[in-house]
Design a binder for these strands. Structure first.
Lengths: 229, 229
DNA sequence: GTTAATCGGTAACAAATGTTACGAAAAGGA
DNA sequence: TCCTTTTCGTAACATTTGTTACCGATTAAC
């Protein structure tokens, strides 16, 4: 019954280094629940009790945070292979921290967190790796959160831009690269308004720190960019 | 040999729900390394390879982040019972993310992360709980990081204040409470300057939202505070 | 009790950022 | 190709926040 999903299951980080046949055996023990959802369905509401964490096999989900006035804010999208709710499911409170809504028809695998932490009686290799993978996944999320905090703690727009561009520079290993986001998304990510972002980028261009046209960026003075940060 | 530390070991979250005698047995397998440090010693530099994560048994440590210009910023303090470096030790890169320096003469227990994830041959109860505790600890850190991000994403000072005060309100379960931080620390936490914080608090006092004197706070209009957030 | 150090409030001014609006360039569709 | 929509740059102005400086209140040290 899991055969249909074999190619997706291979891409799930939680199942890294576990062969499909191993996995099939483990599922007898893990007993994951597989559910199909239609677009716009709501999987969980913020504050609901969380029993299982989810693994998205197919489709796309959106996480929304409810604000006081009833409006909601998009937190992030979940793509196939990714987990959601796993951090909350291991926490004390065990409440969904955000609303989960289906953006495209989706297939979700649900698993109780206890199955990750309780080793099964026959001490299988797969189970041990599962635990290790889970720790890695959560650690990685924590590291990414740290990164986000670094961006947000920076005060001036110029610093944010420099910070971001130097990160991209390291990532691309080149002074010329394309931005992965458009101006709107970037301004959102840096938590500033688009015109303010554009203005500051224009200033930096004037001063000869960078050059750009639309998404294509050229870093002209790495040292000065570094000293801004 | 671990007897000296028994009262401290009981307070370490990583060892929750594990009795001291169980722990002593486990240490034969875990083989933790216990080291003493003098004030001002440097335990690790940012970027160093990380082999073990640490558990602070006694003393106080400071984590510093190096900036481009050589200056460093205090990230946070580590107190007895807390872990440090555990997230990085489970990540791909395995580098120390910050400099670790001794603030007060300290005793540190180091443990290799593999010992947490590899169940030992005799499948002891303690080991399973250790893994569970570690997942809980990392999850909790991730949740706290999320909280910090929420504070930082808020744009206006007034929103930050409202956000913070409502959090404290929930925590204390009363409209009257004492702030746990002085103005300097609070302004630092909210990532604004002290005079700006004071000014905005004064405005909110004028408008009848809150009342305060020094550290003692009284929330006068919860609904309005809520609608600010 | 006296003195010094720290903490918090406040105000004037400077600087940074947001707001709003508009137009040109680019991209996408029919 | 032409039209529409989106994206981006830009400018004037409003608002918010930071900076600097000073003073009184509180606390700690002697």
């Amino acid at each position: 019954m899991y055969q249909n999903y074999s190619n997706i299951l291979e891409k799930v980080d939680l199942f890294n280094d576990i062969t499909f046949s191993e996995l099939e055996n483990m599922f007898f023990c893990l007993r994951p629940l597989i559910k199909e959802y239609k677009k716009d369905e709501i999987i969980a509401l913020e504050g609901d009790d969380i029993k299982n964490f989810g693994v998205l096999l197919q489709g796309k989900l959106m996480l929304y945070k409810e604000k006081f006035d009833g409006t909601r804010v998009l937190l992030k999208a979940v793509y196939p292979g990714q987990l959601f709710g796993e951090i909350a499911s291991f926490s004390e409170k065990r409440k969904w921290p955000a609303q989960v809504q289906v953006a495209k028809n989706s297939t979700v695998m649900f698993m109780p967190p206890e199955k990750i932490t309780n080793t099964c009686t026959n001490l299988c290799r797969g189970h041990r790796i599962l635990t290790l993978n889970m720790i890695k996944i959560i650690s990685k999320k924590a590291i990414n959160l740290n990164k986000t905090i670094e961006y947000l703690s920076v005060k001036s727009i110029r610093q944010k831009i420099a910070y971001y561009l130097l990160d991209q520079y390291k990532k691309n290993n080149s002074k010329n690269f394309m931005l992965e986001m458009n101006r709107n998304e970037l301004s959102d990510f840096l938590n500033v308004t688009r015109p303010s972002l554009s203005r500051e980028m224009a200033n930096m261009k004037k001063e000869g720190l960078i050059d750009y046209h639309r998404s294509s960026i050229k870093l002209l003075d790495i040292d000065s960019l570094g000293s801004i940060v």
